[in-house]
Simulated assay, not measured.
Amino acid sequence: MTYLARTKLYETGKVIIKEEKSNSFIKQVASINNQYINLNIINVMVEDNIYLNIVDNEVKQSYIQKLRSKNKQLQIRIILQGKLEKLDQSTNEKNIYNENEISVEYKQGIEESLLNKQGEHIKYICITLNEEYLNENGFFSNIFKEYFSKKFYEPDSKNKFLELFNREYTSGLDKIYLKNKTMEVILYVLEELRKKDELKLNDLNEEDIHRVKKAKMILDDSFQENMTIALLSKKVALNQTKLKKGFKKLFNKTIHEYLQDLRLKKAMEYLKTNKYSVKEVSLLVGYTNQGSFSYAFSNRFQCLPRDIQKKSDL
């Protein structure tokens, strides 16, 4: 893929359809049609430190676009069509956002790039609440106390949010419309998160939750061991069915997914030190087969383990 800076990507074919500015509101409606993209986008600051992006992008030629580094922020993304892919620059980890999926992420200091693949037609909504807004509205700190990333499936996304794409943004009423719609989406997503969290906990009593959390701690401390679900179940004194369901509900991953993610992240840390061979790293994180380790690693980080060692040599 070609690496393209934002200025390079947007320097040809850009047409400002409508622009409106005031002290607490900015709206820019733009169309960009060049060799890489056919993009229609609405960028809005609906009020101080709350931003809405409505994006309709047909990718004509594959390219990678590095995003600006981010301070602490809460980001809500709703994919109405296609698939969006991002790459974490520090870990090489790819994050995929699928059609009819809503993601909520609370992060800081993230360096990311968009991976845009030829032939992809993506429609999505992205709402960003900056650190200043989160600090001014303390109730957010009760919901998001630390790094947070969660996705959930919403099969009726297009019906719920397609109006934002179909509207003609040429009216003086857009300021009221866009602010109200943005707040409506934020409220809807936070309410859905709350409902799903309540459903999770309703199936587990306090002792069950304690035992499932203990299972996670055991995995964290002994990720390199051959830990079967049967053995983990015995260690925390919770039956396997309840342990598997409870773990998925509490941590949004199966035990296998969590353990594999943990092992691969640890492998990345070991490789970056350049103290161990690939074979040694695979054994350190619990893989007995180097081929299986390399396959899982490349599938997760889009590069081979030896590529990380080469970077560390530079």
Rank of each mutant, 00 (worst) to 15 (best):
K181P: 01
K214A: 07
L162H: 13
G172Y: 09
L238F: 11
L193I: 14
I186V: 15
I209C: 01
E206G: 08
S222L: 09
A215V: 07
K195A: 07
L204K: 02
L204Q: 01
K213L: 03
L164Q: 03
M183E: 14
E192T: 15
N180P: 00
K216G: 04
D174G: 12
K200H: 07
V236K: 12
S222G: 04
F161A: 08
K196S: 01
R211M: 02
F161M: 08
H210V: 06
E198M: 09
D208P: 01
Y177S: 15
L243S: 10
L201A: 02
R167T: 15
L173F: 15
T228A: 00
E198P: 00
L199H: 10
L204M: 06
T241E: 12
N226E: 12
N202V: 00
K196I: 00
L231W: 10
D203K: 06
S233A: 04
Q224W: 07
L164I: 11
Q224E: 05
N202P: 00
E168Y: 14
V212C: 02
K235I: 09
K179H: 11
A215K: 05
K214H: 06
F223A: 05
V212Y: 08
E184T: 12
L232G: 04
K242H: 02
K160R: 15
K235C: 09
S171H: 14
L178N: 03
E163F: 11
L219I: 15
K235F: 03
F223N: 10
Q224R: 07
A237Y: 03
N166G: 10
L238H: 10
A215M: 09
D203L: 03
A215S: 14
V189A: 05
S171I: 10
K181F: 08
I209K: 03
T170S: 12
T241S: 12
R167W: 14
T182R: 02
E225M: 11
K195Q: 10
D208S: 03
K216I: 12
N202G: 00
E192H: 06
M183W: 15
V189I: 09
E198G: 04
E206Q: 11
L173E: 13
A230R: 11
E192G: 05
N180F: 08
K200I: 08
T228K: 01
A230K: 15
D208N: 04
F223L: 06
D221Y: 04
V189M: 04
E206I: 11
L162D: 13
I176K: 01
D221E: 14
N205F: 10
L238C: 03
L162W: 12
E198V: 13
L178M: 05
K216H: 14
E184D: 09
D208F: 05
N205P: 11
K216P: 13
K200C: 06
Y169H: 11
I218P: 03
V212P: 00
R194K: 12
N205D: 14
L238Q: 04
D220C: 06
L173A: 05
K160Y: 11
I176M: 05
D220N: 07
I209R: 02
S171F: 15
G172Q: 07
V212A: 03
V189K: 00
K195V: 10
M183K: 06
E198H: 08
V189G: 02
K196Y: 03
I176C: 07
L190H: 11
L231T: 14
K244H: 00
D197V: 02
N166V: 02
L193S: 02
L243D: 13
K175D: 05
Q240H: 11
D220G: 05
K195C: 05
